[in-house]
C-alpha cells in the first residue's frame, strides 16, 4: 500500500469549554477522493481548518506527504501542495478573476512570469471561468464565486484539495457541472477531501465517506455502507438528506 498523502491522527479542538473535535483520525492515499458528511455544527469546517493550518489542534497531529505539519502555518501548507476552497466564497473583491488566480499561481504554485499566467489560465479554464477572466471578482454571482474558490485552490497546483460545501447554495441544475469539475480533478490524480450536504453529488465522486457528529467520527468507509449505517441514518433523520436523497432511500 502506498504511503498516505494525508494522515490526521487523534485530532482534538476545543473552543473554550466546547469540544468541537474529539479524537478524529483518518488517512488519505494519494489521488483518493474522500467525502465528509455530518449535521450542521458537527465540526466539519473546523476539521478542514485544522488540516490546512488555519487553526492549531489542541491534540493530535496532521501529517502531509510524510512530514508532520501540525505546527506549520496555512501559507506553508499551501506551498507544500494543500489547496482549500471556502464554504462562503472569499474572493479578493478588488482584483479581477484572473488576478485572483494569478496570486494563487505565483505564491502557492511558486510560478513566476509566463508560467504563472499559464497556470492561472489553466485553473480558470478547469473551473469554467475562462470567459470571465477580466471581470472584477467582487461582482461575480454565487456560482461563479464558488468556481473562483475552486480555481484559486487549483492554481496553487495542489496534490490535495479541501472543498468545503462547494455545491451548497447552488440550484439543482448547477450541481452536475460542479460534480464533473471535481471528477475531472480526481481523474488528474489530485486527492480531494470534500465536505458536502448535497450527498448525491458527493457519492457520485468519492470512494470513501466519513460521517462526523459532535466532533467524533461516527462511521467511515464505503459511501453506501456509511449512509446505510443505522447510526448515520438516525443522525440525519428529519434533516435534508434523510427524505430527499435517492441513495439513502434505496438502501
Amino acid at each position: 500500500m502506498a504511503a498516505p498523502l494525508l494522515e490526521v491522527a487523534g485530532v482534538g479542538k476545543r473552543f473554550g469549554r466546547l469540544t468541537v473535535l474529539d479524537d478524529v483520525s483518518f488517512s488519505l492515499a494519494p489521488g483518493e477522493a474522500f467525502g465528509i458528511v455530518g449535521p450542521n455544527g458537527a465540526g466539519k469546517s473546523t476539521l478542514l481548518n485544522v488540516v490546512n493550518g488555519v487553526l492549531r489542534p489542541d491534540a493530535g497531529s496532521v501529517t502531509f506527504d510524510g512530514a508532520d505539519v501540525t505546527r506549520a502555518g496555512a501559507a506553508a501548507r499551501c506551498r507544500a501542495g494543500m489547496g482549500r476552497s471556502y464554504q462562503i466564497p472569499r474572493p479578493f473583491g478588488g482584483m479581477t478573476v484572473l488576478e485572483n488566480a494569478l496570486v494563487a499561481a505565483s505564491f502557492g504554485g511558486g510560478h513566476s512570469g509566463r508560467a504563472a499566467t499559464d497556470c492561472a489560465w489553466g485553473a480558470l479554464e478547469t473551473a469554467g471561468l475562462g470567459n470571465q477572466a477580466d471581470v472584477p471578482a467582487g461582482s461575480l454571482r454565487l456560482l461563479d464565486r464558488k468556481r473562483l474558490e475552486l480555481a484559486r485552490a487549483l492554481a496553487t497546483e495542489p496534490r490535495l484539495v479541501l472543498l468545503d460545501e462547494i455545491a451548497g447554495g447552488l440550484t439543482e441544475a448547477e450541481v452536475p457541472a460542479l460534480v464533473e469539475t471535481v471528477r475531472g480533478l480526481v481523474a488528474q490524480g489530485v486527492a480531494v477531501v470534500w465536505i458536502e450536504h448535497v450527498v448525491h453529488a458527493l457519492v457520485a465522486v468519492v470512494t470513501r465517506l466519513l460521517c462526523l457528529t459532535y466532533g467524533r467520527v461516527l462511521a467511515v468507509g464505503d459511501p453506501h455502507a456509511v449512509l446505510a449505517d443505522p447510526q448515520v441514518v438516525e443522525v440525519y433523520l428529519g434533516s435534508t438528506i434523510g427524505g430527499d436523497d435517492p441513495v439513502v432511500e434505496a438502501t
Binding site: 502555518g73 501559507a75 474572493p91 496570486v103 504554485g109 496553487t156
Partner: peptide, 15 residues
C-alpha cells in the same frame, strides 16, 4: 492587494 482584501484567504494562496 490580495492581503489587503482578505488576509486569511491570502495565506491560503501561499502568501
Amino acid at each position: 492587494r490580495a492581503t489587503s482584501d482578505d488576509q486569511e484567504a491570502a495565506q491560503l494562496m501561499g502568501i
